[in-house]
Simulated scan of single mutants.
Amino acid sequence: MDSINIEIPSLSENIRIIESFIDNVKDKFNLNDDIYGNIMIAVTESVNNAINHGNKKDKSKNVSITMNYSEDEIKFIVSDEGEGFDYNHLPDPTAPENIDKPSGRGIFLMKHLCDEIEFKSEGSVAELTFYLN
């Protein structure tokens, strides 16, 4: 299994670095557009959550992204230095009382775009898996 790791300070503008990283992954592994699109949205959303919620935009704290690649799947592990969150009890963004809220859709979206998603370390680590076949 191939593995690539990058680390960024918790600044919103560093999302561009992640987008370039994913573009490079697409080219290197010749990913199809559907998988590429899902990865781009889900991973940037996860990194955004890590910056804004996990590390609370503290630029002295880093977000680490590790990509593991095998013949069958590609996995992104996004880690922050925050305390984590209760990922088992998230409000449903499709519930009528939450429809107009500006936040709360990220993890819902990530769950629909990934083939597997798992949270570890109280939620400060997200593992996003995409099947290639």
Score class of each variant (00 low, 15 high):
N133M: 01
E7G: 12
E116Y: 01
E19T: 03
I74K: 01
D58M: 08
I74G: 02
S20T: 13
V47T: 02
F108L: 06
S10Y: 04
K28L: 12
S121W: 01
G106E: 04
E45D: 13
D80W: 07
I107P: 07
P102Y: 14
I39V: 07
E81T: 06
I51F: 00
D2V: 04
I18V: 05
D86E: 11
D92H: 14
I107L: 13
D34L: 15
A50Y: 02
Y69S: 10
K28V: 06
I18Y: 00
N55L: 08
S70R: 04
A42C: 04
S64Y: 06
F130D: 01
I35V: 14
Y87N: 09
F85S: 12
I107M: 10
D27N: 14
P93V: 08
N68D: 14
K61N: 12
G106T: 03
D100E: 14
I41T: 09
Y36T: 05
N68A: 02
N30A: 14
G123K: 10
D72V: 00
H89T: 08
Y87R: 08
P102L: 13
G84V: 14
N133G: 04
E13C: 00
S103L: 11
G84W: 13
M1K: 10
E127L: 07
F119R: 07
L31N: 03
R105Q: 04
K28Q: 11
L128S: 05
V47I: 02
K61C: 07
Y36S: 13
S121T: 03
S70L: 00
